[in-house]
Amino acid sequence: MSNLSKEWAHSSLRGMMLIREFEETADKLSLRGKIPGGIHNSSGQEAVAVGVLSALDPLDVIATTHRSHHHTLAKGFSAREVMAELFTKSTGVSRGRGGSMHLGDFHRGHFGGNGIVGAGVGIAMGAALGIQQRGDAKVSVGFVGDGGVNTGRTWEAINMAVIWKLPLIVIIDNNQYAVETFVDRVTGGGDIAKRGEGFGLPSYTINGQDVVEVNEYTAKARQRALAGEGPTIINALTYRYYGHNVGEKGQYRTQDEILDWKTNRDPIDLFIARATSEGLITDSEVAALRDDVKKEVEDAVDFAEKSPQPDLNSILVDVDSGLLGGK
């Protein structure tokens, strides 16, 4: 018997498959020059995104990083609006002005990806302050990478969340490489979660390839935040299959290492194995889901290709509100 519901298993697996299909497709499109500025591929990190977002309420807030397609899709944004944004088309979620690193829609609780490493935790902390000021029953999640945890602003924000017991969850989407720099080479003290202990908040290092484990820890952190007990850090160990950016040909890690993660610790394969053995899904249902996400991504690419460019005359629109007399 499984303690997971069939519905949750199907939805989580589909969510991870959609991200994988989306990223594999976007990577190829980027290499073909279809995506201005390229992308940061999140293939391999699906369980972190789906595990976290499946534990949240749709109106909970997230603020994220330069690598955020997986968080955005897991938050329920359509492949169409995300792909169109990668193409910087007017139908994209940020109207083509944000691009791959700046996906967001505040009305749906997405306070944006970010081109600045470490900035997302601060914004999420501010949103958590807003939630507390209003007395809303929501939480705010700040994603940061293993690179971002070496920025001072991240820990300034965490300290503030601790002293005010803000409903904040910090997710370290720890893919172990800051661009080409291995986390252990640049991280004093080793285990990042130990830093959290020094700031006086519960901090856990977990298996970020296990969507169930990520979901359980996030749900627990959410309960704590809603109870007014303050923030939690979850350091989810994961791995990115591609380079930091599209087309990267780095020599900083071995092919054996990449193959080991892909073969033995792939989050989708691991979850299929578990869900199948627990009787939650059949082989044919898995195949149907694969087919389904493939079609969704094909449709998204078609939509993005056919979407219009933004109106170049709109360049001064929304620089500011104009209400203060700005032109």
């Binding site: 505040f106 601060g122 501010g126 602003r153």
Partner: peptide
């Protein structure tokens, strides 16, 4: 950033 996130 506290002010920024709260304003957002």
């Amino acid at each position: 950033s506290a002010g920024l996130g709260a304003a957002m």
